[in-house]
């Protein structure tokens, strides 16, 4: 969902037919921005405020303490495994759906979206049912001394599930909007499949790809519900950062909980900054390279959690 936000409202503001009376405008501005401040800005600010309430020393100690560091490492590891896997899937699925015609395409697209509509808690439950001690593969796993649930593989699986559609959903509409002309031209000019993908398709979707990766990374590092079911929350071993925050919070160690939370909040802010930058790059890329302005409308609005 790379949105092409133009920050120019002048075409509406200068036009008599598209502007409201000043009091309407100011009421709308006040109401919506107050709502925005109350629900988005205040929580964000309070995270950092609470984190530093007891001073920098406590803050630094909380995030460099052994179990905190272990949680950070695990979180990075999880993202490092699950994001590339979903990236490969997303590219394959988008190539399939955008560049080929086959029956059952609509069904497949719906299936790809499915993980968005499953509650994270249920995701955790599902993997318990498949890999848990009493699950389908439970006995087999015990026999071979393998642990999925209450171990890192379970956390990875749950994370893959919740971030499953991100890259695919980003790429599919983008590739569809670009059509197949350029790829067909490449093939007529003698390029083989990989050459076509590498030299023609990929350069055209790189911003969308990056966008999907950033969003799925944010979600992978921040996932709570699904991971909390399958992790077992063993400190220093299967505790991710969000789970660590929960444990500290439940122990009434608020300063430490908010300190670790502030790292996640920073991650969110960095994500938003990169995302905004990508949108900017993508839209200038889009404006510079798109020859038929009418095609702009083929990008349908899409929103993902």
């Amino acid at each position: 969902m790379i949105s092409r936000t133009s920050h120019r409202s002048t075409r509406f503001e200068r036009n008599l037919a598209t502007r409201e009376a000043p009091w309407v405008k100011w009421t709308l501005l006040t109401l919506s921005l107050s709502f925005f401040a109350l629900f988005l800005i205040l929580p964000l600010v309070s995270v950092f405020f609470e984190a530093l309430r007891k001073g920098w020393e406590v803050y630094l100690l909380s995030i460099t303490e052994e179990t905190a560091l272990a949680a950070i490492k695990l979180t990075v590891l999880i993202a490092f495994i699950s994001v590339p896997l979903n990236l490969v899937f997303g590219v394959a699925a988008a190539w399939l759906i955008a560049k080929h015609d086959f029956r059952g395409k609509q069904l497949l697209t719906t299936f790809i979206d499915l993980p968005f509509s499953v509650s994270p808690v249920i995701v955790g439950l599902m993997y318990m049912l498949v890999f848990g001690a009493n699950g389908w593969f439970g006995a087999w796993l015990v026999e071979h001394d393998l642990k999925v649930i209450f171990a890192v593989p379970g956390i990875v699986l749950a994370t893959i599930f919740v971030t499953f559609p991100f890259v695919a959903r980003e790429l599919i509409p983008l590739m569809q909007a670009q059509g197949r002309d350029e790829e067909e031209a490449a093939v007529v000019l003698g390029a083989n499949g990989w050459q076509t993908f590498w030299y023609v398709t990929l350069p055209n979707v790189k911003w969308g790809l990056l966008y999907g990766v950033i969003l799925s990374n944010a979600r992978a590092m921040g996932e709570f519900g699904a991971v909390s079911v399958v992790s077992g929350k063993i400190r220093g071993q299967t505790n991710t950062m969000p789970l660590h925050v929960e444990i500290l919070y439940n122990e009434y160690n608020f300063a430490a909980a908010f300190a670790v939370a502030s790292l996640l909040a920073l991650l969110a802010l960095v994500t938003l900054v990169i995302k905004t930058w990508v949108e900017h790059r993508a839209s200038s890329h889009f404006n510079a390279t798109h020859m038929v302005p009418a095609d702009v409308n083929t990008l349908s609005p899409r929103v993902m959690p």
């Binding site: 350029e182 031209a185 038929v292």
Partner: peptide, 17 residues
Amino acid sequence: RERQVGFVFQHYALFKH
């Protein structure tokens, strides 16, 4: 790829990048 035909597309299909 083997036919050695030159094809000019209606909307040119030039590689934008």
